[in-house]
Design a protein around this nucleic acid. Structure first.
Length: 511
RNA sequence: GGCGCAUUCGUCUAGGGGCCUAGGACGCCGCCCUCUCACGGCGGUAACACCGGUUCGAAUCCGGUAUGCGCUACCA
């Protein structure tokens, strides 16, 4: 019988979980669940200068938001812990000793400055460069003498001659000549362990059977295989997923706008959609997949049938998917999501969120939230009622949740007609007459419902002898101060009779 | 420079020797619907990186070139 499948996701906590990382986490999770295996989370913080606890917390939060619960890892103790590399020093020690005993490691006294110079010279002469292995020849006595003299030293891995091969589950056989690898450092002069050794030791001791990671690690794999060999343990299966780039074909970074889950959800993308979008890259996609649940992803997606070339993050397609998803939601669910979103971005009782979005756009909003400038604020009773009332009106037209604010934010703030809206309103012939008539008309309606409102408004043009367009435009501007709103009749209805009539009358008074 | 991986419309992709004068989706453009904006519907634009082979026949197989990315670190 074969060993149970165990996979891991091993981010280095140097910042947010970016989308590429989220994607490999997703596929690791899916692979584990498909094979009834276990998914472990490990934090690769061997470089303390770049790792922060805040980043770790951030990453855990994002994974949880995507519902990728890990079976073992931080805050989820298991038999193979600890799950932070900084806490596994003793384990590395032990393995270093084993390698040392096996003659796979040797002490090297070359300083990084010396090596840097050599490398530069080789570079200038357009010659290939790998570490010469000069220190291999040092005698034990010599080593001891120089160590005693206080010279800094590192431990290097003695790369054997020959070639190293492995079968990538996605790309097939890969073969490299060991002479192109060069003895690499495994223990730094400060005594800390290097990435390539740490991963191997961790994967061995955590009983990882399948290493599913980004393509950027493909070139490191031969080194790691050499270490497995030296340790005398079988290497796991490897699968290198295609990378995810920004629109400029470069690695995703801040310059590409919203590129991590936090920012994306801050502008109103739904986690499920982002999650699905990431999964649908490098594979065939069908519209019916947009509303898939995590369980559906597990049931249908197979990391082994992904394509092999890198793909580019396309915010436009994500938007479209988000819109489709929103349209497919039950109205009540959508309303609840809108409310939670508005609360999160501090919309309720905090016009700043609204203004920020209007003036500076989505990225500014995302940034403000990120910096904690907008505190979550629960809605008041009236606001909650209004939100529920208005949500269905916008559900059919928006792409991201922040569009709600753009489209319907005016409903939550006192009437203000300024700038171009004011100019447009004044430019409408008979605007004042129209507004007054409409206010009176609405106030006198027998029943205040959408049908009655529509009938009344549609009767106005003939009644007043003006063009229908003038009436619609005047009422829209007059009730909202906005050129674009949800449906006119529905909006007037959502406002309520008094508020609607009051706004129109007030608008007439401003002319 | 060396090594590795990749290469179909702008983007995500279908395609695994004849079904391909290359199909779908996003975007873009146009039309329809329409109280604004959208949504929705319909239509259009647009690609096999290049050069050589193999073959009766190549997007599909092979070789080379180019380009991109990654590794080549006492980063991960």
């Amino acid at each position: 019988m074969t060993a149970p499948v165990r996979v891991r996701f091993a981010p280095s906590p140097t910042g947010y979980l970016h989308l590429g990382g989220a994607r490999t986490a997703l596929y690791n999770y899916i692979f584990a669940r498909r094979h009834g295996g276990e998914f472990v989370l490990r934090i690769e913080d061997t470089d303390p200068s770049r790792s922060t606890d805040a980043a770790i917390a951030q990453i855990l939060r994002s994974l949880r938001e995507m519902e990728l619960d890990w079976d073992e890892g931080p805050e989820k103790p298991g038999r193979h812990g600890p799950y932070r590399q900084t806490e596994r020093q003793a384990i590395y020690r032990e393995h270093i000793d084993r390698l040392l005993a096996g003659g796979h490691l040797y002490t090297c006294f070359h300083t990084s400055d010396e090596l840097e110079a050599e490398r530069r010279a080789a570079q200038a002469g357009k010659r290939a460069w790998v570490y010469s292995g000069a220190c291999r020849a040092l005698t034990t006595a010599e080593v001891e003498r120089r160590k005693a003299a206080g010279e800094p030293w590192t431990l290097r891995f003695r790369v054997r001659p020959g070639t190293t091969t492995f079968d990538d589950m996605l790309r097939g056989p890969v073969e490299v000549g060991n002479d192109t690898i060069g003895d690499f450092i495994v223990q730094r002069s400060d005594g800390t362990i290097t990435y390539n050794l740490a991963v191997v030791v961790d994967d061995v001791t955590m009983a990882i059977t399948h290493v599913i990671r980004g393509d950027d690690h493909l070139s490191n794999t031969p080194k790691q295989i050499l270490i497995y060999e030296a340790l005398g343990v079988p290497a796991p299966y490897f699968l290198h997923m295609p990378l995810l780039f920004g629109t400029d074909r470069k690695k995703l970074s801040k310059r590409h706008g919203a590129t991590n889950l936090e920012q994306l959800t801050a502008v109103g993308f739904l986690v499920e959609v982002v999650r699905n979008y990431l999964c649908f890259l490098s594979t065939e996609f069908d519209e019916s997949m947009i509303t898939w649940s995590l369980a559906d992803l597990v049931a249908h997606l197979d990391v082994e049938s992904l394509g092999t070339s890198a793909s580019i993050f396309d915010p436009d397609k994500l938007r479209w998917m988000n819109g489709r998803f929103i349209r497919a939601m039950a109205p009540a669910d959508f309303a609840a999501r809108v409310q939670a979103y508005l609360e999160r971005v501090g919309f309720y009782g905090q016009p700043p969120a609204l203004r920020l979005l209007a003036a500076k756009g989505e990225s500014a909003l995302a940034e403000a939230i990120e910096l904690g400038q907008l505190a979550p604020l629960p809605p008041g009773d009236d606001q909650e009622r209004l939100t529920m009332l208005v949500a269905p009106l916008v559900q059919e037209k928006i792409e991201v949740l922040s569009d709600f604010i753009r489209l319907a934010g005016w409903l939550f703030t006192p009437l203000a007609i300024a700038g171009s809206a004011r100019e447009k309103l004044t430019a409408i012939p008979d605007a004042q007459r129209i507004l007054r008539a409409a206010a009176v008309c609405l106030a006198g309606l027998e029943r205040y419902d959408v049908e009655q409102i529509e009938a009344a408004v549609r009767g106005l043009p003939e009644q007043l002898g003006v063009k229908p367009k003038s009436v619609f435009a005047a009422l829209r501007l007059g009730m909202s101060g906005q050129p674009v709103t949800p449906g006119l009749f529905e909006s007037l209805w959502a406002l309520g009779r008094n508020e609607a009539a009051g706004r129109l009358a007030a608008a007439a008074g401003m002319l």
